[in-house]
Nucleic acid binder design. Sequence first.
DNA 1: TCTGGGGTCCTTTTGCCC
DNA 2: TCTGGGGCAAAAGGACCC
Length: 416
Amino acid sequence: VTRRQLQRNGPLPEQLGDDTGCPVLHVDMDAFYASVELRSRPELVGTPVIVGGLGSRSVVLSATYEARAFGVHSAMPMMRARRMCPQATVIPPSHGLYDEASRGVMEIFRSITPLVEPLSLDEAFLDIAGAQRRLGTSRQIGALIRARVVDEQGITCSVGVASSKFVAKLASARAKPDGMIVVPRDDVVAFLHPLPVGVLWGVGDKTEEALTRLGLRTIGDIANTPLSTLQRALGQAAGAHLSALSWGRDDRSVVAHEPDKSIGAEETFARDVDDPAVVLRELLRLAERTAARLRATDHMGRTIALKVRFADFTTITRSKTLREPTDVARVVYETARGLYEALGLQRARIRLVGVRVEGLVASDTTPRQLSMGGGGEEWRAAEQASDQAAARFGAGAVRPATLVERDRKEDGPKRV
DNA sequence: TCTGGGGTCCTTTTGCCC
DNA sequence: TCTGGGGCAAAAGGACCC
């Protein structure tokens, strides 16, 4: 009800600017996971709510604005968040729910324009240049999207409208929660220059620190710094990039379909582990999960990467590129195991292990030398995985292979 | 205050070939 | 034979994002 009222309110002063030449929208859900949870827990609306794991090593995934008022924010360790805000209701995440809500909002976006570039589950860029004749001005389309997201998904979002992607992104952040900001083309530099450097997309803690050392605090400061100075301090690419952004120059276009580049899985142990057998068992699980996702999305990859995080949080990666791309859990596992054993660790205390497959290609475009010909390729991969697992591990190994089968669609015989 | 899990991109180092 | 270095791909690390 309050949301509807908010929408009927007149435009805020910053919404009044000229939106011609502003074809880029950035739409970002407000406190996404928490908002989704509140749909089924309406009695918690208006109270501090934190979504995050219950384990001692988990972090905050999302928090309502009432919780944020206590200093809670996402990525904060849960233990700390609960200390800061003991009265908060803590809800463990339900990723399936968020996936579904995400599909819903992305569908709304795609009904506006096919030029939708999702950045994550809860945000996307839209290029609406081609939709304006049909649906109205940028501001009208932004308002339409906000209304439809509330009506159809029961959560609020914020919208930034601008002539470029990164200004639209900054604008939506400043519109939060439940608002919309238009940055007119001619006002971009005036909008940017007073802002602190840290709000720029791509400037995190380290870069901000480097900029502070140069005495650069605002985006305007960056704009007035020679390119060579920036590049010396930040590197070639980052320096040039920030320099351009500080003058509002950003010619990146909204692209609908970026293919995946890697797929992986990793896990932090509840307690540090120094038993190699435990580590290897975990690597097997992660390899199976990763390979199942590869096959489910019809991908194969050539490079297998192992990630190990030690008790002191130092993290290393080791990788190996195969001659042929694979989507077979056994291959991923054996490669990761080889990389792990090559480390020659002597009971080091390990906090996390991960497996990732990089250099992805679509399965159907990769020539398959070993193919017997005739059979479906997906089916080949599934059988190969289950056969190899069974051959090496005996009957018990049927379980992981069965999980693989379940994740796939209806095809592929169930082996009992 | 003791730091998740999913990713992308960039930089530097290393090994190899010529 | 030794050294230098260009060019390249792979490997490793790290910053960053949500």
